[in-house]
Structures are given as C-alpha cells and as structure tokens.
C-alpha cells in the first residue's frame, strides 16, 4: 500500500482536531493567578496582625500551627500550606512564562511598542512582566524559607529576621513586586473574562485603591517588624511568650500553658 494512501485513511489526517490544551492552560493560568492573589491579600492581613499587638500576631501564628485545636503547636502545618502555595506558584509561573517575551528581540519590540503607545494597560502589562520576573526569585526564596523553618514565625522571630538577619530590603522589594503584580493581575483577569461585570473605569480605580491600601498596610507592617526587631536585637533568638491571653483563647489553649485559665471562684458574700 502506498504511504500516501495510508496517511489519508488515518483518522488523524481526515479529522484533525485542535488540541484543547491551550484553553485548559489559559484557564489554569487564570485560576492559579486568582488563588495566589487572594491568598496574598489574606496573608497580608494575617501578617499585619502585628499592628494590633504582639499577642494578636502570636495568637494567629499559633492558630495556623494548630495550637488551639490539636493540643500543641505543629509548625509543619505551616510547611504544608507553604508547600501547597509553592506548587501553585511554580505552576502559575510556568504557565505565565508562555506570555513572556521569548527572546531579547521580542522584548525590545514590546518595550518600544509600550513606550511609543503610552497606553496604560499595555504599560501595566510590562510592569507585570518585570514584577513577575522578580517574584520568580523573591517568592521562591520566601516560600522555601517558610517551608523549611516554619517555627521561625512569630512576633520576635519574624522581627529578628527583618532586622538582625538584615532581610528587610528583601521583604520591601517583594512587597512592592507582589502587590503591583497581584493588583494588575486581578484587574487583567476581570478584563480577560469580562467578570465581574463592573465598568472598566471602576475596576481600574478599584485596582489602584486596593494596591495602594495593601502597599500602605504592607509598609506599616514592615515598619512594625523592623521596629520590634531593632528593639529586640540584644535578645536575638528569644521567642515571644504572651503573659496573658483573652479568656476565650485560654480556653482553647493546651492544658497547663496558661495557669490563669481557671480564675479563682469569687468568695461568697
């Protein structure tokens, strides 16, 4: 049988069907981006709990370590979350790389185009590329640190990391990159799928407002950790232990950790 006849008879040639993977990858890129951006905002609130006091931050940290649920702190739970986020992050980065300029020539063309057009959304895209590129390194390093040493999260441990370990410039750059990247990403996601159906003008204003809010919150939080770290540098390595907890949290804490859990009964009159 001649080869050509054989090929024509094959189903692949007669009914070539376009791969569905580009659609799935696009959905996956959007989904991972959405999940990471929402996580990032939630994470920022938890981290910013230091602004409400060391005990609040300690309580939230302990909550994520299962302290109030499992009779003791298990930092490995945080490692598990960090591992999940790292996986999500790597997947998102891998998918997003499809949209990056493929070589220097493409980058130069795009850069010149964006510069000449002076078009806000196109300019935002190039900033998303820059910040995304920076996050390849910054977020990976941060996530690995949380994955490997989850016990080093706390009012003093985190502050020592910022100040005595000298990591505050790292966190400052990461804060700027992640907030800019995530904010633009969520706005672009809404444009891409035309959902939620608010006006573009409103969504863009909302995007800037949220980016501004989270940047401000992040900078205040970073400042708070740096201040505590500065004050605590002489006692580097010491861990925070709250002197007291709200009664309802004492009820949840493991037996014996907070001796004042059972207040003495009042004497009868």
């Amino acid at each position: 049988m001649p080869t050509s006849v054989f090929i024509v008879q094959s189903d692949l040639v007669e009914h070539p069907r376009k791969s569905r993977w580009p659609a799935r990858l696009d959905l996956l890129q959007s989904g991972t981006g959405l999940a990471l951006a929402l996580f990032m905002w939630g994470h920022m609130f938890f981290v910013a709990s230091i602004l409400l006091g060391k005990t609040t931050m300690w309580s939230i940290t302990r909550m994520f370590e299962g302290y109030f649920f499992f009779g003791g702190a298990y930092p490995r739970l945080v490692s598990g979350v960090a591992a999940g986020i790292l996986l999500l992050f790597v997947l998102h980065a891998l998918l997003a790389m499809r949209k990056f300029p493929g070589d220097y020539r493409q980058y130069r063309k795009m850069r010149a185009h964006v510069k000449a057009m002076r078009h806000e959304d196109s300019t935002l895209w190039i900033w998303q590329v820059y910040t995304g590129f920076a996050l390849f390194f910054l977020a990976s390093a941060h996530l690995y640190q949380m994955l490997a040493w989850p016990q080093n999260i706390g009012p003093y441990a985190s502050s020592d990391r910022m100040w005595s370990d000298g990591l505050w410039p790292f966190y400052l750059v990461m804060l700027l990159a992640v907030e800019v990247h995530g904010g633009i990403g969520l706005y672009r996601l809404a444009m891409k799928w035309n959902w939620p159906k608010f006006s573009r003008n409103f969504l863009k204003k909302l995007k800037w407002a949220l980016t501004g809010f989270f940047l401000l919150l992040g900078l205040m939080t970073l400042g708070a950790y740096m201040k505590i770290g500065f004050e605590h540098q002489a006692r580097y390595g010491e861990r925070y232990q709250p002197a007291d907890l709200p009664l309802w949290l004492q009820e949840l804490a493991p037996e014996g950790d907070f001796p004042r859990r059972n207040p003495p009964a009042e004497d009868a009159p």
């Binding site: 791969s19 078009h119 959304d121 196109s122 444009m191 035309n194």
Partner: peptide
C-alpha cells in the same frame, strides 16, 4: 482555540482603546 487565537490575547486592550470605530472589542474577545 489556541495561543495564536483567543487564548493568546493578553488583554492589553489597546485594540479596544484605539479602534477608530469604537467597536466593543474587549467584550467580544472576553
């Protein structure tokens, strides 16, 4: 249905903003 088609669009929306006929390109592509 591929990256040269609708899944390649990065939603920069300059097409929408520069269209001299003000066509609703953003909505249509989404």
């Amino acid at each position: 249905g591929d990256d040269a088609g609708v899944f390649g669009c990065m939603s920069l929306l300059a097409c929408h903003d520069m269209c001299p006929k003000a066509l609703p390109l953003k909505t249509q592509i989404a």
